[in-house]
Design a protein around this nucleic acid. Structure first.
Length: 237
DNA sequence: GCATTAATTCTGT
DNA sequence: ACAGAATTAATGC
């Protein structure tokens, strides 16, 4: 049966960082300061100084590389339980990304002083959470390079959707094609076409404005089948 | 608070 | 690039 497929396929790494057990931070929240970001507001701009990290508790933010011409390539999305700014803080660099809120967000800001003097010293589990977060970012970037180099578009999209389903424990993914395209470095139309193709094969259900995976195990089976794309009627450049 | 209308965003070709 | 659908924001009552 298809249940076997899920066992053969390692959970894909997806450019979306989220942590299920953000309660571990509860004991340290008093060391931080609560901040709220409005939908679409800019959290950090390139060249901003970073003197603190942020624990995201609600909402989703987008971290993107931006060219001087205004082009954007999303690097990853961050949801509740993820940590922003630790990379630049520990590398003593200015922020280099364009970071913005995709919805109303609540976060807690911890100063560098608090991180180094309190969190790292007193809370080993939080220190580990920081490392996990950093490691995730590292794997996300290498995985994206690998997949864009070696996999077909349907495979890349499929892995993304599959990984997201596993990470979020849901077959329903409220993402627009445009957001997915920016995340995977694809053209928006390519995503639309591929989504349609996957719908035709029955792997995705036919809803608009949200992507619904019909059968997660069937998707896993498709991903390991390593066959040519289900609908080779279009090509990506 | 509720119903319309105007704007903006999303999809599918 | 465009058209139609779907969302969301704005306005008037």
């Amino acid at each position: 049966m298809t249940a076997v497929a899920a066992e053969l396929l390692h959970p894909p790494i997806v450019p979306w960082i989220e942590s299920k057990n953000q309660e571990i931070w509860d004991k340290a929240l008093h060391l931080g300061r609560k901040v709220v970001w409005k939908n679409k507001s800019v959290v950090q701009a390139p060249d901003d100084e970073v003197n603190s990290i942020y624990l995201i508790r609600q909402g989703v933010i987008k971290v993107a590389a931006a060219s001087s011409e205004g082009l954007q390539r999303t690097l990853w999305l961050m949801g509740p339980g993820s940590i922003l700014g630790e990379a630049s803080l520990f590398s003593n660099r200015r922020n280099s990304h364009h970071i913005s809120a995709m919805e109303e967000c609540v976060a807690y800001e911890f100063s560098k002083q608090v991180v180094v003097g309190e969190i790292l010293v007193r809370y080993p589990d939080l220190a580990e959470a920081l490392l996990t977060n950093l490691a995730n970012k590292s794997y996300i970037m290498s995985t994206q390079v690998e997949e864009s180099a070696f996999l077909s578009v349907p495979q890349r999209l499929g892995r993304f959707l599959y990984g997201l389903c596993l990470a979020r424990n849901s077959r329903h993914l409220p993402l627009s094609h445009a957001v997915i395209a920016e995340l995977l470095g694809l053209h928006r139309v390519t995503v639309s076409n591929t989504v349609s193709a996957l719908k035709r094969t029955g792997l995705l259900e036919d809803h608009t404005h949200e992507i619904v995976v019909a059968d997660i195990n069937a998707l896993a089976a498709f991903l390991i089948s390593d066959e040519s794309p289900p609908v080779p009627s279009f090509r990506t450049r």
